[in-house]
């Protein structure tokens, strides 16, 4: 479980997150949705510790992450996997080296054990044959899959994904969504995905938090979205004509 308790964040006098309290459940695919510039990426990066919050507390299970020092945070970060919007693979390393890096740095595994673990993770994301390639030689979908493999290589308890589908075609997006969802269930991870892809919401969203102008505006399940009367949420979710028709059918 990850919990944010009344957190706020300001950049250059502009309050981007405004008193947000939210809880993300273990073993579920939790989604943060919202318009561009609504503060969802800042929320995700604040939860993971890349931004320090100005006010409020963040808990990882029973541990108050906000109050921890650098060394204690480092221990929790070994339990965190993160998939960035652009993949964020190390350009100078091959796919295998990228996935293997956390094992090299934080485990005492033998060479054979590391090789097996990397092979397992690459097979899990269906990239067995691409281990010798460099990030510049990969397609967008492959980059995301390598990022997933790297994120799960240390068996994380928490998985953060910042717009994992951005720049991908609809079919590849579904593949990535399902992969993240399956991994969440398989390893009982607390997964938080930051997205504005409505397909993802309808495919894998188990708990959805809508951020609007820095506030937590709404939360619920994907079924609740279809029946919600919240005007801002409806404006965002059912912006397209097709989505509006889907809602009327659902009702």
């Amino acid at each position: 479980m990850i919990r944010a308790d009344h957190i706020s964040k300001t950049f250059d006098g502009r309050e981007v997150l405004k008193d947000i309290s939210v809880e993300f459940d273990t073993g579920k695919t939790n989604l943060i949705i919202g318009r561009s510039g609504s503060g969802k990426t800042v929320l995700l990066k604040s939860l993971v510790g890349l931004h320090e919050v100005d006010k409020g507390l963040i808990f990882f299970d029973d541990t108050c992450y906000t109050k921890l020092g650098f060394r204690e945070r480092k221990e929790i970060r070994k339990d965190i996997g993160m998939i960035f919007q652009v993949g964020a693979l190390l350009d100078s390393s091959t796919v295998r080296e990228n996935v293997r890096l956390p094992l090299d740095l934080f485990t005492e595994m033998t060479e054979g054990e590391k090789r097996d673990r990397v092979n397992f993770c690459l097979e899990r994301v269906r990239l067995q044959g691409a281990d010798h390639l460099y990030p510049s030689e990969l397609s967008g979908g492959m980059v995301k899959r390598v990022a997933i493999a790297r994120a799960i290589v240390l068996n994380p308890r928490y998985l953060f994904c910042d717009e994992p589908n951005s720049g991908l075609d609809p079919q590849t997006s579904v593949v990535i969504d399902n992969l993240i969802h399956d991994i969440t269930k398989e390893f009982n991870i607390t997964t938080i995905i930051n997205t504005h892809d409505m397909n993802s919401v309808m495919e894998i969203g188990e708990k959805i938090v809508y951020i609007h102008e820095g506030h937590k505006w709404w939360e619920g399940t994907k079924d609740d979205i279809l029946l919600s009367d919240n005007p801002e949420l409806n404006d965002f979710v059912f912006a397209s004509a097709m989505a509006k028709r889907a809602k009327s059918v659902a009702r």
Binding site: L50, R77, K78, M82, F84, D91
Partner: peptide, 17 residues
């Protein structure tokens, strides 16, 4: 600098590096 703007440094930090 490129590693910074393409979030590679953030990725290392998240790993605990």
């Amino acid at each position: 600098g490129t590693m910074r703007i393409t979030e590679q440094i953030d990725a290392l930090e998240i790993m605990g590096v």
